[in-house]
Each structure stands twice: as C-alpha cells, then as structure tokens.
Amino acid sequence: MTSLNKKHTSIEEAIARIPDGASIMVGGFGSPGTPFALLDELLAQGQKGLTLIKNDANEADIGIGRLIKAGRVDRLIASHIGLNRVAIEEMNAGRLAVEMYPQGLLAEKIRCAGVGHPGFLTDIGLDTEIASHRREIELDGRTCAIEPAIHADFALVHADVADTYGNLTYRGTAINFNPLMAMAADTVIAQAFRLDAPGSLKPEYIHTPSAFVNHVVQVDPATSEQGIREHAV
C-alpha cells in the first residue's frame, strides 16, 4: 500500500511501474473518461506485450488506438471496436487477439473483480452464439451462465477532481467504466484535471474512495487529448 501522502506523483513515475506484459484496464466509453495523458505516457515509455481491457478501442489515432497501432498490444478485451479500423484490421490479420463481451456483462465482470467476487450468474445471451463459450448451471430451476470476474494488474482511470489521498470524482458521462475499474486492479493510477487537498471534496460526493487508488497524477486539460479533441467517440 502506498502511504496516503505519497499517492500524488509524476506521470512518468506512475507509468514507469507498468512492466512489459501487464494487463491494464483503461477507463472510458469512446473518448469521455479515457485517460489520454496516461496512455500517451505509456506509449512514450514503450511497454509492450500488453493486455488491455476497455469498452472499445478508441479511434485509430487517439488513446489506446495509438498503442494498438504501435504494436504494443497483444490482447484486447472489449465490447465494441467498430470505430477503430486499425484494431479491426489487426484482429482480422491475427496480430491482435480480441475477446468481446456484451457491454453490460463486461461492466459486471469488472465490477465483480472490484467487489471481490470470483464471478456471477446471468441469463444474458442464453440461446445465442455467445452461450457456446460458457459453462451453464441450474439455479432454482433456471438455466444460468457463469461469467467469471475480470481482474487486471493495473487500471488507468480518468477523474475530474481528485484529492491527494486518492479520492476521486467523475463528471458527466466520463464516469462510465472508471469507478468499476478503479476497484478491480491491483494497482490503480488515476489522472485528474484538478487535485485538491484532503478535506476539499465533500465526503458524500466522492465516487471512488481513496482506499482503491494507489497513485494520482494531475493532468492539464489544455495540453492533453481531453482538452483538444474534436471527436466525441
């Protein structure tokens, strides 16, 4: 555990903790909530052989799209990658292993890891193509599929405001997968537009309590993709 007052760190130091071959959850649904500054630092540092877990693959030239294009990603776990033609080409060429789940199941698999459950039971997707990959059991006379939790070595999340203890708040639809991922990885690195002293955030408005967060990095919206993008997705 990182001590409370050492959570605030530089972006270089935070990302340098990620080794080659790591599994990394990345927040965001399309652009909102994607931790662009952390991802660009990961691209700059050169880690490879990565497994990424994200709702989507961003677009080809931003966010995790850049990592995929640079050949740093071996495996992607996602829900829909239709907006990234490079990711689709890499998948079809067999250079990128892609595992896809219905979006709500993906969210719940991550949530499960975050709340300390090994998995959950669901009736989603019974009698469809996805059923063939799953184990089924009977519960109270109903057929249910077992969905194992998805856990990761690291999570990279985007918050709006954080404090130096690692409490996080999100804004608008940038929430999406961030609070789920911020609970589901061994080491959680959060970027935030604003970093406040402990006590500045109202306790009842905190989305992710500091207990789940290891490192907090402040990013300037004006110099990161968050502030300059022209695409919504």
Binding site: F29, G30, S31, P32, G33, N55, L83, Q103, G104, A107, E108, I110, R111, D160, R171, G172, T173, A174, I175, N176, F177, N178, P179, L180, Q226, G227, R229, H231, A232, V233
Partner: peptide, 25 residues
C-alpha cells in the same frame, strides 16, 4: 459541446431536466 457528455452513439449531448449519470454497470 461538453467533451464529457456523449450518448452511446458518440454524439455530444445535453442533460434534460431530472437527468442522472452513473457508471456502466
């Protein structure tokens, strides 16, 4: 547009009166 407000199709949106936002789970 508010860059942190989109719908599932990726269009920038606003919040109507009484709206709420929440995580994907």
């Amino acid at each position: 547009p508010d860059y942190e407000m989109i719908d599932s199709g990726g269009a920038y949106i606003g919040a109507s009166p009484g709206a709420s936002v929440f995580d994907s789970a």
